[in-house]
C-alpha cells in the first residue's frame, strides 16, 4: 500500500518534470526543464491547486537521496582529469575566490537590508 502511494506520488512529481521538459522543447525556453517543473510545482502549491500532503512524503524521500542521484554524472570527471593538470590548477583558485566573493556579497546585502527593515519597523 505504502509503495503504491509512493509510486503514484512519484508519477505525479515526474509529470511536472515532464511538463517542464515539454514546455522547454515546445517554446525553446532557455531554462532547464527541471527548473520549469520546479516553478510550476511551487506555483501549483501556492495557488492551492492540490494539498501539500499529496506530494509531501515522496518529495521528502526523493530529496533525502538527492546526493545519490548526481553521483553517476559526477563520476564523468574521470574523462577530464587532464583539465586539472598544469595551468588547470588555477581553475580551482578561480572557483574558490569567486565563491568567497559570492558569499560576501550575498551575505552582507541580506544582512544590511534585513537590519534596515528591522530598525524601520521599530521606529514606526
Amino acid at each position: 500500500m505504502k509503495f503504491i502511494v509512493f509510486l503514484l506520488q512519484f508519477i505525479f512529481i515526474y509529470g511536472f518534470f515532464f511538463l517542464g521538459q515539454l514546455l522547454r522543447e515546445l517554446f525553446g525556453i532557455p531554462l532547464p526543464g527541471s527548473i520549469i517543473g520546479f516553478t510550476l510545482m511551487f506555483a501549483a502549491l501556492a495557488l492551492k491547486l492540490f494539498p501539500l500532503r499529496l506530494v509531501e512524503s515522496t518529495a521528502t524521500l526523493l530529496l533525502s537521496f538527492l546526493p545519490l542521484f548526481f553521483i553517476p554524472a559526477t563520476v564523468g570527471v574521470i574523462n577530464y582529469f587532464d583539465v586539472f593538470a598544469g595551468k588547470g590548477f588555477f581553475l580551482i583558485a578561480v572557483v574558490i575566490i569567486s565563491t568567497l566573493l559570492t558569499m560576501a556579497a550575498s551575505g552582507s546585502t541580506s544582512q544590511y537590508l534585513g537590519r534596515r527593515i528591522e530598525t524601520g519597523k521599530e521606529q514606526k
Binding site: 518534470f17 517543473g37 520546479f38 510545482m41 542521484f69
Partner: peptide, 19 residues
C-alpha cells in the same frame, strides 16, 4: 547502469519546490 540513477535528478529538483 548509471544513467538510470541519473534520470532521477530532474524529478528531485522538482521536489525542491516542496521545502
Amino acid at each position: 547502469g548509471g544513467h538510470w540513477i541519473d534520470s532521477l535528478m530532474g524529478p528531485a529538483v522538482v521536489a525542491l519546490a516542496i521545502p
